[in-house]
């Protein structure tokens, strides 16, 4: 409960924030650089004197949007593959599960870094620096996190497809697609929602990690991870600079994980690996 309120507050802050706190994210005032929290700058300033609260609000929008979008990608891919594997009675199911296991044993972060390294420039040319990176990061994070969802969906499908109500639908002449969409999928959604919730947290961490390694969004786009990356060389003189974005990531992730845990208890689903 508390975590749901906390998360809603955080979302509200980054959505409505810019309308209330009308300070530019890129106003440079070197004289006022590296100040601690004050009335003029509630979260302090960075080395160039840019207002941290404004940058945090802006970055929070991106970080949360990446988390949600990557979750949608992974849930979509995972449901598709899991459903195909769960419905097929032949080699296709085994092949897809082998693929899932293969992806589970891929080292995710190195692969993520390599993909971004290889495709960064191409997408930047097509969609612009920010849009290109956004699409790339969302696709790559989502594309490497669908495996747990696929396993869950397959397990659900394997048991659901033998249930009487599905057999009834089949007897009435429902096509396989209709059986899946109208009858099986709605009953398999519970665990998927839980896995999706936890995926949002994982995607936020993944995006922050990339930005923290200096390989996420471009320097002028202050996501939470990027602010932390810029701050890490000034820990001795401006610790507030690192503490606020790090704290924001932590609060978002803990809140989402607690919600996922609560949902699991409520829906009494099997544990997600």
């Amino acid at each position: 409960m508390i975590s749901a309120v906390l998360l809603l507050l955080l979302i509200a802050a980054v959505v409505i924030g810019p309308f209330i706190w009308r300070v530019s994210i890129s106003d440079i005032d070197v004289v006022a650089g590296l100040q601690g929290p004050s009335l003029a700058h509630p979260f302090g300033t960075d080395d160039l004197g840019q207002d941290l609260l404004a940058r945090m609000i802006y970055g929070g929008r991106i970080s949360l949007a990446v988390g949600l979008a990557a979750m949608l990608v992974s849930v979509f891919v995972g449901t598709l593959i899991g459903a195909l594997a769960g419905m097929s009675r032949g080699a296709l199911g085994y092949a897809l599960m082998w693929l899932t296991d293969l992806f589970l044993s891929l080292p995710q972060l190195p692969l993520l870094l390599m993909l971004i390294y290889l495709f960064r420039d191409g997408l930047k040319a097509v969609f612009g620096p920010e849009g290109g990176i956004f699409i790339l990061i969302v696709l790559v994070i989502g594309g490497l996190r669908w495996m747990p969802v696929a396993r869950l969906v397959r397990a659900q499908f394997l048991s659901l497809r033998e249930k009487e109500f599905v057999e009834a639908a089949r007897a009435l002449g429902a096509s396989p697609v209709r059986q899946v969409v109208r009858h099986i999928l709605p009953n398999a959604l519970g665990p998927v929602i839980i896995a999706g919730t936890i995926d949002v947290a994982a995607a936020i961490i993944a995006e922050s990690t990339l930005s923290f390694l200096g390989l996420g969004f471009p320097p002028d786009t202050p996501t939470w991870g990027r602010i932390l990356y810029d701050a890490k060389d000034f820990l001795d003189i401006g610790p507030h600079w690192a503490l606020f974005p790090g704290g924001a990531i932590f609060i978002a992730v803990v809140a989402i994980n607690f919600i996922g845990d609560g949902l699991r208890d409520a829906l009494d689903a099997r544990k997600v690996i």
Partner: peptide, 22 residues
């Protein structure tokens, strides 16, 4: 445990540096 795995390693690393080094 819950707090531990929700804290990303890059943030714990920075916190440790802040506390134990700085």
């Amino acid at each position: 445990a819950f707090i531990g795995f929700s804290l990303p390693t890059f943030f714990t690393g920075i916190l440790f540096i802040l506390v134990f080094s700085v």
